[in-house]
Design a protein around this nucleic acid. Structure first.
Lengths: 148, 148
DNA sequence: ATGCATTACATGCATTTGCAATAGTTGTAA
DNA sequence: TTACAACTATTGCAAATGCATGTAATGCAT
Protein backbone atom coordinates (compact mmCIF):
# COMPACT_ATOMS: atom_id res chain seq x y z
CA UNK A 1 0.00 0.00 0.00
CA UNK A 2 2.88 2.33 -0.56
CA UNK A 3 1.69 5.52 -2.18
CA UNK A 4 3.04 6.58 -5.52
CA UNK A 5 3.47 10.22 -6.28
CA UNK A 6 1.76 11.30 -9.46
CA UNK A 7 4.87 13.04 -10.62
CA UNK A 8 6.82 9.84 -10.52
CA UNK A 9 4.30 7.94 -12.59
CA UNK A 10 5.26 7.47 -16.22
CA UNK A 11 2.52 6.33 -18.55
CA UNK A 12 5.10 4.80 -20.85
CA UNK A 13 6.24 2.50 -18.08
CA UNK A 14 2.74 1.27 -17.33
CA UNK A 15 1.94 -2.14 -18.73
CA UNK A 16 -1.71 -1.16 -19.10
CA UNK A 17 -0.99 2.01 -21.00
CA UNK A 18 1.28 0.15 -23.40
CA UNK A 19 -1.27 -2.60 -23.97
CA UNK A 20 -4.06 -0.12 -24.66
CA UNK A 21 -1.94 1.95 -26.97
CA UNK A 22 -0.77 -1.04 -28.96
CA UNK A 23 -4.28 -2.47 -29.04
CA UNK A 24 -5.53 0.67 -30.75
CA UNK A 25 -2.70 0.63 -33.26
CA UNK A 26 -3.48 -2.97 -34.09
CA UNK A 27 -7.17 -2.18 -34.43
CA UNK A 28 -6.51 0.51 -36.96
CA UNK A 29 -4.16 -1.56 -39.06
CA UNK A 30 -6.40 -4.61 -38.99
CA UNK A 31 -9.41 -2.57 -39.99
CA UNK A 32 -7.59 -1.23 -43.03
CA UNK A 33 -6.29 -4.61 -44.15
CA UNK A 34 -9.57 -6.41 -43.73
CA UNK A 35 -11.49 -3.79 -45.61
CA UNK A 36 -9.15 -4.34 -48.51
CA UNK A 37 -10.42 -7.90 -48.86
CA UNK A 38 -14.01 -6.99 -48.06
CA UNK A 39 -14.22 -8.53 -44.62
CA UNK A 40 -15.79 -6.55 -41.83
CA UNK A 41 -13.23 -6.16 -39.10
CA UNK A 42 -15.75 -6.90 -36.39
CA UNK A 43 -16.41 -10.43 -37.58
CA UNK A 44 -13.00 -11.52 -38.73
CA UNK A 45 -12.24 -13.31 -35.47
CA UNK A 46 -15.48 -15.26 -35.69
CA UNK A 47 -14.72 -16.13 -39.26
CA UNK A 48 -11.32 -17.49 -38.30
CA UNK A 49 -12.70 -19.59 -35.50
CA UNK A 50 -15.24 -21.06 -37.86
CA UNK A 51 -12.54 -21.61 -40.43
CA UNK A 52 -10.73 -23.80 -37.99
CA UNK A 53 -13.83 -25.63 -36.89
CA UNK A 54 -17.42 -25.01 -37.81
CA UNK A 55 -20.56 -26.75 -36.75
CA UNK A 56 -20.12 -25.39 -33.25
CA UNK A 57 -22.70 -23.31 -31.43
CA UNK A 58 -22.53 -19.63 -30.72
CA UNK A 59 -21.65 -19.94 -27.09
CA UNK A 60 -18.67 -22.02 -28.06
CA UNK A 61 -17.52 -19.39 -30.53
CA UNK A 62 -17.80 -16.72 -27.89
CA UNK A 63 -15.84 -18.73 -25.39
CA UNK A 64 -12.93 -19.27 -27.73
CA UNK A 65 -12.66 -15.55 -28.35
CA UNK A 66 -13.58 -14.28 -24.91
CA UNK A 67 -16.51 -12.44 -26.43
CA UNK A 68 -19.86 -11.93 -24.73
CA UNK A 69 -22.78 -13.85 -26.14
CA UNK A 70 -24.85 -11.00 -27.46
CA UNK A 71 -21.80 -9.98 -29.41
CA UNK A 72 -21.45 -13.39 -31.01
CA UNK A 73 -25.14 -13.45 -31.75
CA UNK A 74 -24.88 -10.23 -33.69
CA UNK A 75 -21.64 -11.18 -35.35
CA UNK A 76 -23.14 -14.38 -36.65
CA UNK A 77 -26.04 -12.30 -37.95
CA UNK A 78 -23.52 -10.32 -39.94
CA UNK A 79 -21.82 -13.40 -41.28
CA UNK A 80 -25.17 -14.84 -42.31
CA UNK A 81 -26.27 -11.62 -43.95
CA UNK A 82 -23.00 -11.48 -45.85
CA UNK A 83 -23.55 -15.01 -47.07
CA UNK A 84 -20.49 -16.27 -45.26
CA UNK A 85 -22.15 -18.55 -42.73
CA UNK A 86 -25.43 -20.23 -41.95
CA UNK A 87 -27.15 -21.43 -38.82
CA UNK A 88 -28.48 -24.95 -38.69
CA UNK A 89 -30.44 -26.63 -35.94
CA UNK A 90 -28.43 -28.70 -33.52
CA UNK A 91 -29.72 -32.26 -33.73
CA UNK A 92 -28.74 -32.72 -30.11
CA UNK A 93 -30.60 -29.75 -28.72
CA UNK A 94 -33.30 -27.50 -30.03
CA UNK A 95 -32.08 -24.56 -28.01
CA UNK A 96 -28.68 -24.34 -29.63
CA UNK A 97 -27.82 -23.54 -33.22
CA UNK A 98 -24.77 -24.79 -35.02
CA UNK A 99 -22.94 -22.35 -37.22
CA UNK A 100 -21.43 -23.51 -40.50
CA UNK A 101 -19.42 -21.64 -43.07
CA UNK A 102 -20.70 -21.41 -46.60
CA UNK A 103 -18.25 -22.06 -49.40
CA UNK A 104 -17.84 -18.35 -49.81
CA UNK A 105 -17.22 -18.06 -46.10
CA UNK A 106 -14.61 -20.75 -46.16
CA UNK A 107 -12.80 -19.07 -49.02
CA UNK A 108 -12.75 -15.79 -47.12
CA UNK A 109 -11.58 -17.49 -43.96
CA UNK A 110 -8.61 -18.93 -45.79
CA UNK A 111 -7.42 -15.46 -46.67
CA UNK A 112 -7.31 -14.23 -43.10
CA UNK A 113 -4.31 -15.88 -41.43
CA UNK A 114 -1.83 -14.32 -43.83
CA UNK A 115 -3.29 -10.91 -43.20
CA UNK A 116 -3.11 -11.34 -39.46
CA UNK A 117 0.43 -12.61 -39.71
CA UNK A 118 1.47 -9.63 -41.82
CA UNK A 119 -0.10 -7.06 -39.52
CA UNK A 120 1.54 -8.66 -36.51
CA UNK A 121 4.86 -8.65 -38.28
CA UNK A 122 4.39 -5.01 -39.19
CA UNK A 123 3.60 -4.00 -35.63
CA UNK A 124 6.50 -6.03 -34.30
CA UNK A 125 9.01 -4.83 -36.84
CA UNK A 126 11.11 -3.08 -34.19
CA UNK A 127 11.89 -6.37 -32.50
CA UNK A 128 14.28 -9.15 -33.40
CA UNK A 129 12.90 -12.63 -33.96
CA UNK A 130 14.08 -13.71 -30.55
CA UNK A 131 12.42 -10.72 -28.96
CA UNK A 132 9.18 -11.45 -30.77
CA UNK A 133 9.13 -14.96 -29.47
CA UNK A 134 9.96 -13.67 -26.05
CA UNK A 135 7.17 -11.10 -25.91
CA UNK A 136 4.59 -13.54 -27.25
CA UNK A 137 5.60 -16.09 -24.66
CA UNK A 138 5.38 -13.59 -21.84
CA UNK A 139 1.99 -12.35 -23.00
CA UNK A 140 0.73 -15.91 -23.21
CA UNK A 141 1.56 -16.31 -19.55
CA UNK A 142 -0.20 -13.06 -18.74
CA UNK A 143 -3.26 -14.08 -20.73
CA UNK A 144 -3.24 -17.49 -19.10
CA UNK A 145 -3.00 -19.42 -22.35
CA UNK A 146 0.62 -20.47 -22.09
CA UNK A 147 1.24 -24.15 -21.61
CA UNK A 148 -2.32 -25.31 -22.04
CA UNK B 1 3.74 -13.93 -49.37
CA UNK B 2 3.82 -17.49 -48.14
CA UNK B 3 0.35 -18.72 -47.41
CA UNK B 4 -0.58 -19.94 -43.97
CA UNK B 5 -3.04 -22.74 -43.63
CA UNK B 6 -5.92 -21.92 -41.34
CA UNK B 7 -5.46 -25.16 -39.48
CA UNK B 8 -1.95 -24.20 -38.54
CA UNK B 9 -2.95 -20.84 -37.16
CA UNK B 10 -3.17 -20.67 -33.42
CA UNK B 11 -4.92 -17.68 -31.95
CA UNK B 12 -2.91 -18.03 -28.77
CA UNK B 13 0.32 -17.56 -30.70
CA UNK B 14 -0.87 -14.36 -32.33
CA UNK B 15 0.48 -11.18 -30.84
CA UNK B 16 -2.68 -9.34 -31.79
CA UNK B 17 -4.99 -11.83 -30.19
CA UNK B 18 -3.00 -11.74 -26.98
CA UNK B 19 -2.96 -7.97 -26.90
CA UNK B 20 -6.70 -7.70 -27.45
CA UNK B 21 -7.47 -10.34 -24.87
CA UNK B 22 -5.29 -8.75 -22.24
CA UNK B 23 -6.62 -5.30 -23.10
CA UNK B 24 -10.13 -6.45 -22.32
CA UNK B 25 -9.07 -8.04 -19.05
CA UNK B 26 -7.35 -4.82 -18.05
CA UNK B 27 -10.41 -2.80 -19.01
CA UNK B 28 -12.65 -4.83 -16.78
CA UNK B 29 -10.35 -4.70 -13.80
CA UNK B 30 -9.69 -1.00 -14.16
CA UNK B 31 -13.37 -0.25 -14.45
CA UNK B 32 -14.08 -2.06 -11.21
CA UNK B 33 -11.28 -0.41 -9.29
CA UNK B 34 -12.03 3.10 -10.48
CA UNK B 35 -15.68 2.79 -9.70
CA UNK B 36 -14.70 1.96 -6.13
CA UNK B 37 -13.19 5.41 -5.76
CA UNK B 38 -15.90 7.13 -7.77
CA UNK B 39 -13.86 7.92 -10.84
CA UNK B 40 -15.35 7.22 -14.23
CA UNK B 41 -13.07 4.82 -16.03
CA UNK B 42 -13.32 6.71 -19.26
CA UNK B 43 -11.73 9.83 -17.90
CA UNK B 44 -9.12 8.41 -15.58
CA UNK B 45 -6.36 8.73 -18.16
CA UNK B 46 -7.19 12.38 -18.74
CA UNK B 47 -7.25 12.94 -15.01
CA UNK B 48 -3.80 11.45 -14.65
CA UNK B 49 -2.35 13.53 -17.43
CA UNK B 50 -3.75 16.63 -15.82
CA UNK B 51 -2.46 15.50 -12.48
CA UNK B 52 1.02 15.50 -13.88
CA UNK B 53 0.63 18.78 -15.65
CA UNK B 54 -2.42 20.94 -15.99
CA UNK B 55 -2.94 24.21 -17.76
CA UNK B 56 -2.47 22.49 -21.08
CA UNK B 57 -4.98 22.55 -23.89
CA UNK B 58 -7.19 19.72 -25.02
CA UNK B 59 -5.24 18.85 -28.11
CA UNK B 60 -2.17 18.43 -25.96
CA UNK B 61 -4.02 16.07 -23.64
CA UNK B 62 -5.19 14.01 -26.58
CA UNK B 63 -1.71 13.77 -28.01
CA UNK B 64 -0.22 12.45 -24.82
CA UNK B 65 -2.80 9.69 -24.67
CA UNK B 66 -3.16 8.98 -28.36
CA UNK B 67 -6.83 9.85 -28.12
CA UNK B 68 -8.80 11.57 -30.87
CA UNK B 69 -9.86 15.13 -30.22
CA UNK B 70 -13.58 14.71 -30.02
CA UNK B 71 -12.92 12.13 -27.34
CA UNK B 72 -10.87 14.53 -25.29
CA UNK B 73 -13.47 17.21 -25.76
CA UNK B 74 -16.14 15.01 -24.27
CA UNK B 75 -13.89 13.67 -21.56
CA UNK B 76 -13.08 17.16 -20.40
CA UNK B 77 -16.82 17.84 -20.37
CA UNK B 78 -17.19 14.95 -17.98
CA UNK B 79 -14.39 16.16 -15.77
CA UNK B 80 -15.91 19.62 -15.68
CA UNK B 81 -19.38 18.29 -14.92
CA UNK B 82 -17.95 16.19 -12.13
CA UNK B 83 -16.28 19.25 -10.68
CA UNK B 84 -12.84 17.80 -11.22
CA UNK B 85 -11.54 20.24 -13.80
CA UNK B 86 -12.25 23.59 -15.32
CA UNK B 87 -11.55 25.24 -18.64
CA UNK B 88 -9.95 28.65 -18.68
CA UNK B 89 -9.17 30.88 -21.59
CA UNK B 90 -5.68 30.65 -22.95
CA UNK B 91 -4.10 34.11 -22.68
CA UNK B 92 -2.02 33.29 -25.73
CA UNK B 93 -4.87 32.28 -28.01
CA UNK B 94 -8.59 32.73 -27.92
CA UNK B 95 -9.25 29.53 -29.80
CA UNK B 96 -7.64 27.26 -27.29
CA UNK B 97 -8.74 26.52 -23.77
CA UNK B 98 -6.47 25.51 -20.97
CA UNK B 99 -7.67 22.79 -18.67
CA UNK B 100 -6.95 22.99 -14.98
CA UNK B 101 -7.75 20.61 -12.18
CA UNK B 102 -9.88 21.79 -9.33
CA UNK B 103 -8.74 20.94 -5.83
CA UNK B 104 -11.16 18.08 -5.83
CA UNK B 105 -9.76 16.95 -9.15
CA UNK B 106 -6.22 17.07 -7.88
CA UNK B 107 -7.13 15.02 -4.85
CA UNK B 108 -8.74 12.40 -7.06
CA UNK B 109 -5.81 12.39 -9.42
CA UNK B 110 -3.47 11.62 -6.56
CA UNK B 111 -5.37 8.44 -5.84
CA UNK B 112 -4.99 7.00 -9.30
CA UNK B 113 -1.36 5.91 -9.68
CA UNK B 114 -1.58 3.42 -6.85
CA UNK B 115 -4.68 1.89 -8.37
CA UNK B 116 -3.07 1.58 -11.77
CA UNK B 117 0.02 0.09 -10.25
CA UNK B 118 -2.03 -2.47 -8.32
CA UNK B 119 -4.07 -3.53 -11.33
CA UNK B 120 -0.96 -3.92 -13.42
CA UNK B 121 0.64 -5.96 -10.69
CA UNK B 122 -2.45 -8.11 -10.48
CA UNK B 123 -2.52 -8.78 -14.20
CA UNK B 124 1.20 -9.50 -14.25
CA UNK B 125 1.19 -11.74 -11.22
CA UNK B 126 2.21 -14.77 -13.27
CA UNK B 127 5.52 -13.18 -14.18
CA UNK B 128 8.69 -12.72 -12.18
CA UNK B 129 10.02 -9.23 -11.63
CA UNK B 130 12.62 -9.73 -14.33
CA UNK B 131 9.98 -10.93 -16.75
CA UNK B 132 7.79 -7.94 -15.99
CA UNK B 133 10.59 -5.57 -16.77
CA UNK B 134 11.33 -7.51 -19.89
CA UNK B 135 7.79 -7.46 -21.24
CA UNK B 136 7.37 -3.77 -20.47
CA UNK B 137 10.62 -3.00 -22.25
CA UNK B 138 9.63 -4.98 -25.30
CA UNK B 139 6.20 -3.37 -25.45
CA UNK B 140 7.79 0.04 -25.17
CA UNK B 141 9.75 -0.71 -28.28
CA UNK B 142 6.63 -1.93 -30.05
CA UNK B 143 4.71 1.17 -29.00
CA UNK B 144 7.58 3.37 -30.05
CA UNK B 145 8.05 5.01 -26.67
CA UNK B 146 11.20 3.23 -25.60
CA UNK B 147 14.36 5.24 -25.30
CA UNK B 148 12.94 8.70 -25.81
C1' DA C 1 -5.51 44.07 -45.94
C1' DT C 2 -7.31 40.24 -47.99
C1' DG C 3 -7.99 35.56 -48.89
C1' DC C 4 -7.09 31.01 -47.66
C1' DA C 5 -5.22 27.21 -45.18
C1' DT C 6 -4.71 25.63 -40.62
C1' DT C 7 -5.68 25.27 -35.78
C1' DA C 8 -8.69 24.31 -31.73
C1' DC C 9 -12.69 22.80 -30.17
C1' DA C 10 -17.57 21.35 -30.21
C1' DT C 11 -21.52 18.75 -31.79
C1' DG C 12 -25.39 16.54 -34.88
C1' DC C 13 -26.43 12.26 -36.12
C1' DA C 14 -26.31 7.58 -37.50
C1' DT C 15 -24.25 3.47 -35.96
C1' DT C 16 -22.58 0.50 -32.43
C1' DT C 17 -22.42 -1.12 -27.88
C1' DG C 18 -23.67 -3.36 -23.68
C1' DC C 19 -26.94 -4.32 -20.18
C1' DA C 20 -30.93 -6.33 -18.88
C1' DA C 21 -34.89 -8.69 -20.03
C1' DT C 22 -37.18 -12.11 -22.88
C1' DA C 23 -38.40 -16.59 -25.05
C1' DG C 24 -37.82 -21.08 -25.60
C1' DT C 25 -35.41 -25.45 -24.25
C1' DT C 26 -33.43 -28.88 -21.36
C1' DG C 27 -31.95 -31.18 -17.03
C1' DT C 28 -33.19 -32.63 -12.60
C1' DA C 29 -35.07 -33.34 -8.31
C1' DA C 30 -39.15 -34.04 -5.54
C1' DT D 1 -45.36 -35.09 -13.63
C1' DT D 2 -44.41 -31.02 -12.10
C1' DA D 3 -41.83 -27.39 -10.62
C1' DC D 4 -37.70 -25.03 -10.90
C1' DA D 5 -33.04 -24.00 -12.13
C1' DA D 6 -29.79 -23.69 -15.81
C1' DC D 7 -28.80 -23.25 -20.68
C1' DT D 8 -28.87 -20.97 -25.46
C1' DA D 9 -29.88 -17.38 -28.13
C1' DT D 10 -32.04 -13.04 -29.20
C1' DT D 11 -33.52 -8.27 -28.75
C1' DG D 12 -35.32 -3.57 -26.77
C1' DC D 13 -33.45 0.32 -25.38
C1' DA D 14 -30.51 3.72 -23.49
C1' DA D 15 -25.92 5.16 -23.65
C1' DA D 16 -21.59 5.52 -25.97
C1' DT D 17 -18.97 5.96 -30.12
C1' DG D 18 -16.99 7.93 -34.21
C1' DC D 19 -17.41 10.32 -38.40
C1' DA D 20 -18.16 14.32 -40.59
C1' DT D 21 -19.23 18.88 -40.20
C1' DG D 22 -19.59 23.39 -38.06
C1' DT D 23 -17.81 27.59 -35.71
C1' DA D 24 -14.46 30.60 -34.41
C1' DA D 25 -9.70 32.06 -34.25
C1' DT D 26 -5.15 32.40 -36.09
C1' DG D 27 -1.14 32.36 -39.22
C1' DC D 28 0.65 33.30 -43.57
C1' DA D 29 1.32 34.44 -48.24
C1' DT D 30 0.23 37.73 -51.64
Amino acid sequence: MTQINLKDFRREDSFGFLIQTIARTLDEKMKIEFEKVGVDYKVFANLMVLGQQDGINQREIGQRLNFPEYFTSRNVDMLVNAGLAERRPDPASRRSLLVFLTEKGRAKAEELPSIVRDVNKDVLQGLTDAERQSVVGLLQTVAGVSSE
